[in-house]
């Protein structure tokens, strides 16, 4: 479905990604693990068309995405839930959701969009009570749910999620992971970037580990979890909190 092939990206003279390759198959949840500054967000931006790779390409079902404007990437079927939510704070919850479906405006899908809105509200009932409220007034967890619901309104084939649980309470974190687990059933494969490695591995089938812009390991979640050395080497010595969060 989504494949990244040999992508390199430099910020000026500083390499941020070096020949990164990864794949996300239909119906799969794949996580990308790594420390701060390892290049995870840069890779998300390259896939979404916000940054142009100096080398390599991004393909969706065989069609090249690299070089397209971000708006075209969304239309092709790759949506992103950016780090820090990035909602349209002064706009209402409803307007945020409507704009999530902006890429579908010319396809005459009015009724489908309306139905998807209902489905999104069923998935995140808390948003249904807040439809008229400015998005900036929601709590952190609610904002994350809105950000996810908004991205799903584009009906993506692949959903990129950048640190969806960052800064959220354990209970909310669990709720978010529950939603992510259900996404493939609704038609979206997921590429999940997380620092919460245990949480991510509990929902993902496979994972990649990235350090200093290079993929160092890839395997099933079980393989990564089972490999103590790998955990020590790439995720650091860890303490696992009661919420299942890994702290280093």
């Amino acid at each position: 479905m989504l494949s990244v092939e040999g992508v390199s990206f430099n910020y000026g003279p500083h390499p941020a990604l070096r020949e990164v390759s990864l794949r996300v198959e239909p119906g799969e949840i794949v996580c990308l693990l790594g420390a701060n500054g390892a290049g995870k967000t840069t890779l998300m931006n390259v896939i979404s068309g916000l940054a142009r790779p100096q080398q390599g390409k991004v393909l969706l079902a065989g069609r090249e995405l690299s070089g397209l404007k971000p708006s075209r990437v969304v239309e092709a079927g790759v949506a992103q839930v950016p780090e820090g939510r990035q909602l349209f704070a002064p706009l209402s919850v409803r307007e945020n959701l409507e704009l999530g479906a902006f890429s579908r405006r010319s396809r005459g899908e009015r009724q489908e969009v309306a139905r998807d809105m209902e489905r999104a509200l069923a998935m995140f009932p808390v948003l249904a009570q807040r439809l008229g409220q400015p998005a900036g007034t929601l709590s952190g967890g609610e904002q994350q749910m809105l950000a996810m619901a908004r991205a799903l309104m584009a009906r993506p084939k692949v959903l990129l999620m950048d640190e969806p649980t960052l800064g959220l309470a354990p209970l909310v974190t669990r709720e978010i992971f529950d939603v992510i687990r259900r996404l493939p059933a609704s038609g979206a494969s997921v590429l999940l970037v997380e620092q919460n490695a245990l949480g991510a591995l509990s929902v993902a089938q496979r994972g990649y580990i990235i350090t200093s812009g290079q993929i160092r390991f890839s395997g099933t979640s079980r393989e990564i979890l089972g490999d103590v050395l790998l955990r020590e080497a790439f995720l650091g010595p860890e303490k696992v909190t009661a919420a299942g969060e890994v702290r280093r």
Partner: peptide
Amino acid sequence: LTGKAMRAVAANPRAAALMGID
């Protein structure tokens, strides 16, 4: 929708681009 998209660009241009807004 176009008017809302313009407000979205004013509020957060990066997020607007990620929603498929030119």
